[in-house]
């Protein structure tokens, strides 16, 4: 006599059942239908109408479903879940649109010589294949490097003050760093103009542009570095001091090496913050069309200036050049961002 085997099938009660999935799908389908119907029948027109009707219909249908399955309170819950989804969609849509636009329009401006030529011999209405971005990329690289050399030590020292020394000034300094990150970029430009250009150098150059970028970069580096240093366990600091190290040795040989990859992330985020900064560049660098390797002298081109100038020239070719410049800038920001993400995720493992 064989015993009949009863195997209990594992179930996942927290997952929506097939029936619920079907209802969900039907509701979405119904909302799409409703949006098409209403746009066709009534005076509502345009993308906005589809979007609005779809979400209103989805919210109302979910409300009805909620009320029918349980009660009024459940219906309201369902309704607001759709409202929150709507908010999320409205955040994602512009981002998607920006990425799509830049890749779609910038694509047309790409050509073989883009990264090896400069604009010194090209006029605005020349075909797109003449000229290129070389001067702008070199200029941006120099501007960012000089800004980095100045702001990295200051930013990290500020972060070290906030995490290691914790004196009476911690609160006010944290506020000042916050306030500094809110300084409008044009004010940073004006400041360098009044403090450096009119008093010392008397001329535009890449260096003064870098100084303005420094002001914008320090708070980003300081805040990210502070977060990173806060993550270093206190045990490490105590161990360092217990071994007889002075605070200086502990910070220099234990804390900072432990936070190294995080500090690099801070650096990258700082670079991403300033690489596309336009307003101070427009005031200070002069924006040349030829390659200039000397940041202390002469007008220096850069990606934001190139984009700005191309769009303002207004011919069809130069606008295409502008989009191509934006594409290069966006790719630069994207890769910096992904690099920071990669380093950040490696740190937490």
């Amino acid at each position: 006599m064989s015993e009949s085997k009863v195997s209990v099938k594992p179930s996942r009660p927290w997952r929506p059942s097939p029936k619920e999935r079907a209802i969900n799908f039907a509701l979405i389908l119904g909302s799409v239908l409703a949006s098409y119907l209403l746009v066709a029948v009534t005076e509502l027109k345009g993308k906005l109408a589809y979007f609005a009707v779809f979400f209103v219909a989805l919210a109302v249908l979910n409300l009805v479903r909620g009320v029918l399955t349980r009660d009024w309170m459940n219906g309201r819950d369902q309704f607001f879940s759709i409202v929150m989804l709507l908010g999320m969609t409205m955040v994602i849509l512009p981002t998607a649109s920006i990425l799509y636009t830049v890749f779609d329009r910038g694509r047309k401006g790409l050509h073989a010589g883009l990264l090896t030529n400069d604009m010194s011999l090209a006029t605005p209405s020349d075909p797109i294949t003449s000229g290129g971005l070389l001067h702008a990329i070199i200029g941006t690289f120099l501007l960012v490097s000089v800004a980095l050399v100045v702001s990295l030590p200051i930013g990290v020292l500020t972060a070290l003050y906030l995490t290691e020394i914790k004196g009476r000034l911690t609160r006010p300094i944290r506020f000042l760093v916050q306030a500094m990150s809110g300084v409008p970029s044009i004010v940073a430009g004006l400041f360098i103009l009044s403090a450096v250009v009119y008093t010392v150098t008397k001329s535009y150059s890449g260096l003064v542009g870098s100084l303005a970028l420094t002001i914008l970069m320090i708070p980003t580096i300081a805040r990210t570095a502070e977060e990173v240093l806060n993550l270093i366990p206190n045990d490490l600091r105590e161990a360092g001091v217990a071994l007889g190290g002075t605070q200086w040795r502990t910070v220099a040989m234990v804390v900072v090496p432990a936070a190294k990859s995080g500090l690099i992330t801070a650096l990258i985020l700082g670079v991403a913050r300033i690489v596309g900064e336009t307003a101070p560049i427009l005031l200070l660098t002069g924006g040349g069309d030829a390659v200039n390797l000397n940041p202390t002298q002469g007008a220096m081109g850069s990606l934001p200036f190139y984009i700005w100038k191309s769009f303002l020239l207004g011919t069809e070719e130069s606008i295409t050049r502008g989009w191509a410049g934006l594409l290069v800038l966006l790719v630069l920001v994207l890769s910096l961002f992904l690099l920071a993400r990669f380093l950040g995720s490696r740190r937490t493992k």
């Binding site: 030590p153 200051i154 990290v156 020292l157 500020t158 070290l160 003050y161 906030l162 290691e164 020394i165 004196g167 000034l169 006010p172 300094i173 000042l176 760093v177 306030a179 500094m180 300084v183 002001i215 320090i218 708070p219 300081a222």
Partner: peptide, 12 residues
């Protein structure tokens, strides 16, 4: 480090 920390005050 304190001098570095005060830089934000100085710049502002």
């Amino acid at each position: 480090v304190t001098a570095g920390g005060l830089s934000s005050l100085v710049i502002l």
